[in-house]
Each structure stands twice: as C-alpha cells, then as structure tokens.
Simulated scan of single mutants.
Amino acid sequence: MTSIEHLAERQRAFAAERDWEQFHTPKNLAMALAGEAGELLAEFQWLTPEESTKVMDDPDAGNRVKSELADVFLYLTRLADVLGIDPIQAAHAKLDEGERRYDAATYRGSARKAPPLT
C-alpha cells in the first residue's frame, strides 16, 4: 500500500467518523482545494523570487508554508479519492504527455508553450 493510499484511507475514516462525506462532493472539495492553494500563495505573495527560495529558513514562515502545503495536499488527495482517480498514475500520465510535448532539445531553458498535441 502506498503512502497516498494510506492517507486516503485515513481521510475516508476521518470524514466518516464525523459524518462529513455528505459535504465532500467533488465541487466542494475542488473549491476548498482552490481556497487552500490561495492561502499557500498568500505566504509567497510579497516575497522576492530570492526570498521565496529561502522561506523555509524562517521557522515561522516555514511552518505556515508547510501547513498550507499540507492542506492543499490533503484536499487534493481527498478529491482524487472521491473521484476514483489514482493521483500518482495521473501524474505519471501528465509527465509522459509533457515529455512528448516538450522535447529537451527544443525547450531546454525556454518558458514558451508548446503547441497542442495532434
């Protein structure tokens, strides 16, 4: 059992013990995920690019970032579980697509978008 599967099981049990499954619709979970992503973003909002790379050096800021990242990960994991999506498999499929769209020789060091796959 992967750690993500174990985490999804813990979340399922957590929600069931509190009778929260009724609230864990895909729409509600996606909205909560977006809200938590916004809270994570707020931790970086006014930092310079250099400061953002050192955020974990500050114990208070680092703890806030870690907490918000955990919230994002938990909502993402719960949403994937409710929808029956294996997030690891989906991520590998997305990386496979990226490798096809963005060959290293053409896109190395470039931030430009690739044209859609045909």
Rank of each mutant, 00 (worst) to 15 (best):
81 D>F: 15
101 R>W: 00
82 V>L: 03
49 P>G: 13
70 A>G: 14
79 L>D: 13
75 Y>L: 12
62 G>E: 05
75 Y>G: 03
116 P>I: 10
69 L>D: 06
11 Q>D: 02
81 D>L: 07
111 A>L: 15
99 E>P: 00
111 A>F: 14
80 A>D: 13
16 A>N: 01
88 I>C: 02
94 K>R: 15
35 G>M: 04
67 S>Q: 15
55 V>E: 00
12 R>H: 13
94 K>H: 12
81 D>T: 09
31 M>W: 04
67 S>F: 15
23 F>A: 15
19 D>Q: 08
116 P>T: 06
45 Q>I: 07
94 K>P: 05
97 E>D: 13
76 L>K: 08
30 A>W: 07
87 P>R: 05
47 L>N: 07
85 I>A: 09
82 V>S: 04
58 D>H: 10
75 Y>D: 05
61 A>V: 03
59 P>I: 05
93 A>P: 00
18 R>T: 01
69 L>M: 15
101 R>I: 02
107 Y>V: 07
82 V>A: 05
85 I>D: 09
110 S>G: 00
62 G>S: 12
117 L>Q: 15
28 N>E: 04
49 P>F: 10
85 I>F: 12
49 P>A: 12
15 A>W: 00
3 S>G: 10
46 W>C: 07
5 E>I: 09
21 E>D: 13
11 Q>H: 07
87 P>T: 10
28 N>F: 05
112 R>C: 08
97 E>F: 09
38 G>W: 02
58 D>Y: 00
51 E>A: 14
53 T>S: 05
27 K>R: 09
95 L>N: 13
90 A>M: 05
58 D>S: 11
46 W>R: 13
20 W>R: 05
77 T>W: 09
14 F>Y: 13
44 F>T: 02
96 D>F: 08
34 A>M: 13
17 E>Q: 06
58 D>P: 12
10 R>M: 13
9 E>N: 09
59 P>A: 04
26 P>W: 01
38 G>S: 06
27 K>G: 03
71 D>I: 03
116 P>W: 00
85 I>N: 08
19 D>V: 06
62 G>C: 12
58 D>C: 12
104 A>W: 09
22 Q>I: 11
89 Q>F: 03
18 R>S: 03
55 V>R: 05
118 T>D: 15
39 E>R: 01
111 A>W: 14
16 A>M: 01
89 Q>L: 11
36 E>A: 10
35 G>A: 04
100 R>I: 04
103 D>V: 14
15 A>M: 00
56 M>E: 04
71 D>L: 04
84 G>I: 11
72 V>T: 07
77 T>E: 11
2 T>M: 09
46 W>E: 06
110 S>E: 08
94 K>T: 13
72 V>H: 07
33 L>I: 04
79 L>F: 13
4 I>Q: 04
99 E>S: 06
44 F>D: 01
101 R>L: 15
26 P>V: 02
60 D>E: 12
50 E>D: 11
98 G>D: 00
108 R>G: 07
56 M>P: 01
34 A>D: 07
90 A>E: 01
16 A>S: 02
7 L>T: 10
86 D>K: 05
59 P>Q: 00
111 A>K: 09
83 L>P: 10
77 T>K: 08
43 E>C: 15
14 F>T: 00
70 A>M: 10
24 H>N: 10
77 T>G: 11
25 T>I: 03
78 R>H: 14
